Amino acid sequence: MRKILNIIACSIVTLTILVSMFPIKVSHAKTQSKRKIVVFEESVDKVKKNNIIKKHGATKIKDIKAINAIVVNVSDVDNFESEESVRYVEDDVIVSIDDAIVYISGKVNDSDITSKTKKKDDTTPEEQEEVIPWGIKYVGAPEMWEITRGEGIKVAVIDTGIDVNHPDLGDNIKGGINTIINDNTYNDNNGHGTHVAGIIGATDNDIGVVGVAPEVDLYSVKALDSYGDGYVSDIIYGINWCIINDIDIINMSFGINENLIALHDVVKLASENGIIMIASSGNNYGGYSQYPAVFEEVVAVGAIDYSGNILGFSAINGVDVWAPGYNILST
């Protein structure tokens, strides 16, 4: 099972770049000064944590059990750092997907795909004849299908959600969570997460496209809203959820410049629990990879073109794997 998991992970590592690194986005973080992540010592129980929050006039938003933290709206006079029971306090920054997102999910050039049959223009997903995108073939996914098609592998997409009614995804979506409001309404109201999910696990059903692992179990972890924005605490909460629910692989097609201890703490815990994590290195034009891709527990992916040349918008430093990142067709 572990060998099969590694095979799937390696393919998803290379194919994740198809959406996370072709000119889709540049992520940045904005500080929300009134919203903080307060991380307590491991021995501090729930009652004591709540008393400390109340003492400092803060309002509790949510618990993150994996790192023994509480996300709060703080008052003007809070001083959590003075508490011996508090390990550290960090700003709950906002992770944003840039407005200039370019999805390739409609019409495509024949040169951009390897066809089982050619896709027709101006059709609904149900009417589109199935194609294998060029990047899927480039990384050798069809050959991998002789070994495994991803069955039994649980992959979580931490993003804007997944379209649960998409005809090329629905059968593979097995569950999820909305970490923004902490419920199970994890449908995509932006499109980015659905695009990522299609690259990973679009079904082989004679319509649309085929993903790298067409029989994988997809889990939608909606941590970004309809604008592509989300607090880093919601991403941390999503990773926490993945640990609890025995997810095998986590995909994170976003990045920030801040090296946040809380984010790294939960990433390390996920790694200790055997979860393979994949993240885009960032679209920063030859610069350094962003977080969480920088963390040693995470595989950082950079972008190449049809000829294997590094694309100009891709990060270069800190990249672990290079993969197709241009003219990407997905759901």
Rank of each mutant, 00 (worst) to 15 (best):
R2Q: 15
I7T: 13
S20G: 11
I24S: 07
H28F: 09
R35E: 01
K46A: 13
H56P: 00
T59D: 12
D63E: 11
I64L: 05
V74Q: 10
V77K: 14
D78V: 03
E84R: 09
S85K: 07
V93T: 10
D98C: 06
A100S: 15
A100F: 13
G106N: 15
K107M: 00
N109D: 15
D121V: 02
D122A: 12
D122F: 14
E127K: 15
Q128G: 01
I132W: 07
W134G: 06
I136D: 04
Y138G: 00
P142Q: 07
P142R: 08
E143R: 11
E151V: 04
A156R: 03
D159E: 12
D159L: 12
I180L: 13
I181E: 14
N182P: 05
N184S: 15
G193F: 04
G208S: 05
G208D: 06
G211I: 13
V212L: 14
A213S: 15
Y219L: 05
Y219E: 06
S220A: 13
D225P: 09
S226Q: 09
D229W: 00
V232D: 06
Y237R: 03
G238E: 00
G238A: 02
N240Q: 09
I247Q: 02
S253V: 01
G255S: 05
N257I: 02
I261W: 05
L269T: 12
Y288C: 01
S289C: 12
Q290T: 15
P292Q: 15
V299C: 12
D305Y: 11
G308N: 12
L311Q: 13
P324L: 14
T331F: 14
